[in-house]
Each structure stands twice: as structure tokens, then as C-alpha cells.
């Protein structure tokens, strides 16, 4: 489904000071597959996830989604693809602060070509019920704990019925108990919805049995590239 071919990403921090975040990486993630990107901080995991999602343009190489080269699409086409086919969970608090919990969850549906409808609202409520926050619909993000916020983000990531869920260190700001709960939730969703799942983590303990583990170091894949 997602294919990265000889992808590199460099950042220019100053004159003659290029940082090679990802160097010549190839990786394929199949439909319904669950992949964990592991490695130490600064190994290039997040950059690789961003490259796979089309959130940043590679310096070299190709990224394809179902055979379509991402960077040959227009901004509107790329945005539509992210909106409809990819769900995101970030490591930082990513809810829009001026929207309520319910509005945050159905917000991605308002970005689609057809806008949102009663169906989206109902689904948002259903998803919030599924993550255990049915009683927090009218609350604002600042009124929730970090764990609750991350549950809302998970509900939001599923609102458009994506084919792949990408989670970047989703439990890094959470306590151990909440971390376990969130990871169990991801596992359940992956199983029940049949989503492809790309998890970025530096904690190997979070990798569930059955996940393909891809290890990165210094911007390169050191193991697990082949599916």
C-alpha cells in the first residue's frame, strides 16, 4: 500500500550544514499490516513516518500510495488522500484548542469535498463512546487529562474510516497505566477494523506480538525492512 523507494531527507540548518535525517531508505507497508518503527531518539523514525504520510517532501527517492506517487499529486489531491485514507496520532497534544471534543473529532470530515453531515456527527459520538469519552462531548481539550486528549485524537484519526493509522510516539506524554490502555486500544482497533498500522516508538516494550519491527539508526534502516 505505502512504498518508500530509496528515500532520503535532509534539512539545511545553515550554510553548508545539512542534517541527513533519513538516508536512502526503502520500506513497504502492506494493507492491514502492523509495523513498528523503533530506534533511539534522532534515528529518523518520525521523519520516515512524515515521508510515508506525505507530510514532508523527500530530498531524494519516491513515495507511492497504492502505486500513485505522492509528490506528483497536487496539494488538493495530497490533502484529500491524507484526509480520507490516513489517520494520525501525534506525540504532542494535537487537538484544536478552540473546538470542543465532539467538534475536534468530526473536524476532519469538514475538510472533505462533501463536507460533514449528520452521519459524521453520529460517527464522532460513536467513536468517542468507543474510546470511553461519551460524557465529554462538550468539553474543551484544556479540560481533559493528557490520556483523555490522546483518546480523542484516536477517535479523530478514525472518523473518515482510514486505511492506515500512523501513530508517532503516541504514549510519550502519558503515565504507564494510560500508556498500556492506549496501546491496547490501538491493538483492538487494528484487529477489529483491519487497518494498516504504523507505530513510531523508542520503547520496544510497546511493540505488540505480531507487529513487524523495523529498526532505525542514524537515518537508516538497520533491520526489518523486508515485509
Amino acid at each position: 500500500m505505502i512504498r518508500l523507494e530509496n528515500v532520503s531527507k535532509s534539512y539545511r540548518l545553515g550554510k553548508g550544514n545539512d542534517v541527513h535525517a533519513v538516508s536512502d531508505v526503502s520500506l513497504e507497508i502492506g494493507a492491514g499490516e502492523s509495523v513498528a518503527l523503533v530506534g533511539r531518539s534522532g534515528s529518523g523514525k518520525t521523519t520516515l513516518l512524515n515521508l510515508a504520510a506525505g507530510l514532508t517532501r523527500p530530498t531524494a527517492g519516491r513515495v507511492t500510495f497504492d502505486g500513485v506517487e505522492l509528490w506528483k499529486l497536487s496539494d488538493a489531491e495530497q490533502s484529500h488522500l491524507r484526509n480520507q485514507r490516513i489517520g494520525f496520532v501525534f506525540q504532542f497534544p494535537s487537538l484544536l484548542p478552540t473546538l470542543t471534543v465532539l467538534e475536534n473529532v468530526f473536524f476532519p470530515t469538514t475538510l472533505g469535498a462533501n463536507g460533514h453531515g449528520v452521519d459524521a456527527m453520529g460517527r464522532a459520538k460513536e467513536l468517542l463512546g468507543r474510546v470511553g469519552l461519551a460524557d465529554k462531548l462538550a468539553a474543551y481539550p484544556r479540560q481533559l487529562s493528557a490520556g483523555q486528549q490522546q483518546r480523542v485524537v484516536i477517535a479523530r484519526s478514525l472518523i473518515n474510516r482510514p486505511e492506515v493509522l500512523m501513530a508517532d510516539e503516541p504514549t510519550s506524554n502519558l503515565d504507564e497505566r494510560t500508556e498500556t490502555e492506549i496501546m491496547e486500544l490501538f491493538h483492538d482497533l487494528h484487529i477489529s477494523l483491519g487497518l494498516a498500522f504504523l507505530l513510531v516508538t523508542h520503547t520496544r516494550q510497546l511493540v505488540s506480538p505480531g507487529m513487524r519491527t523495523v529498526e532505525m539508526a542514524a537515518g537508516r534502516i538497520v533491520s526489518g525492512a523486508a515485509g
Binding site: D75, N83, F88, F90, L96, F107, L111
Partner: peptide, 10 residues
Amino acid sequence: VMRALGATRR
């Protein structure tokens, strides 16, 4: 985040 969720530049 809005861009990641599918908001276009426009």
C-alpha cells in the same frame, strides 16, 4: 495538524 488532517494550503 490541520494540514496533516487534510486541510489544503488554500
